[in-house]
Design a protein around this nucleic acid. Sequence first.
DNA 1: TTTAGTGCGACCATATTGATCGGAGATCAT
DNA 2: ATGATCTCCGATCAATATGGTCGCACTAAA
Lengths: 157, 157
Amino acid sequence: MLKISKKADYALMALQHIASVQFGDVTPGRVVNTKEIAEEYNIPLELLAKVLQVLSKNGLIESHNGPKGGYLLARSARQITIAQILESIEGPLAITDCSHEKDGDYCMQREHCNIRTPLLKIQDSIYQLLNNMTLGDMMGGTPLITIQSPSAQGVER
Amino acid sequence: MLKISKKADYALMALQHIASVQFGDVTPGRVVNTKEIAEEYNIPLELLAKVLQVLSKNGLIESHNGPKGGYLLARSARQITIAQILESIEGPLAITDCSHEKDGDYCMQREHCNIRTPLLKIQDSIYQLLNNMTLGDMMGGTPLITIQSPSAQGVER
DNA sequence: TTTAGTGCGACCATATTGATCGGAGATCAT
DNA sequence: ATGATCTCCGATCAATATGGTCGCACTAAA
């Protein structure tokens, strides 16, 4: 339930690794290739490659071809949010379908739906939570932001 | 991504309906059967039945057999949290596998895993969010606010 | 006893995810 | 400049999870 996919897991691990290499003290600025990450974390090489390709396509990382090539963060670790990473891999994060109804399909329950509004509230809260936490926060053991439940302010209608 | 299942959706709708009938002004205390809910919200009857059975088994609602039978909330709407409902249908809500490693299988990345702690933090925050909101919060008599949201795609990168 | 209803289990279809393969493009060494 | 090698990249296949269905046993009221 509410589980994130393995691809998303791999993406988070890879980005964390790239960030720690790029901004670490040992070899700052070094590019890191797919094989290195795959071996370090026991991730299937090809699958990880695919994940990195998507991240690259979505502008989170930059790719450098050829020998000595590899990946590089496209911007600072503090400017990459968890929400961006997850959405990049798995599309818009919506806990319910009816938040992005295209004209073709719209849910049969819609007209009498009684849970739409509360669900959208919850969805929004989760998004804020994920969007307020950056890749940078995941690194140096920096304490996370604490979210406050929306039930505190009740559910408007 | 992070989408909740249809079964969970149905569970929420059904419980909301039962609660509104039970504590409503029209026919307070009336039991409501599966067919009524299924027709009201266009939910496949058998699937809804299965969902209600699970909810009953987990002590969220009480079932009454025979003619004039049906379902009834097992306790007050304010004592039933969204988290309880979701967990009842889909098992423990964990965004990552490694939060409940049984001895048999544990993740291959574990030893070098760099994202475990942050993920557990996020998971905890989401759980608090869902556990602080009750079925009672979801109700309130004015359903069906139709939100035309053209800004639904307003996420820039 | 009949009838309307729930309880319960097994079963199939489909959608999503996980994993794999072969090729294209770019860079370094010679 | 040219070949060889290493990387990125797109399309394809398999496994798993989910959504949905069917049939029958059990219970209680009329």
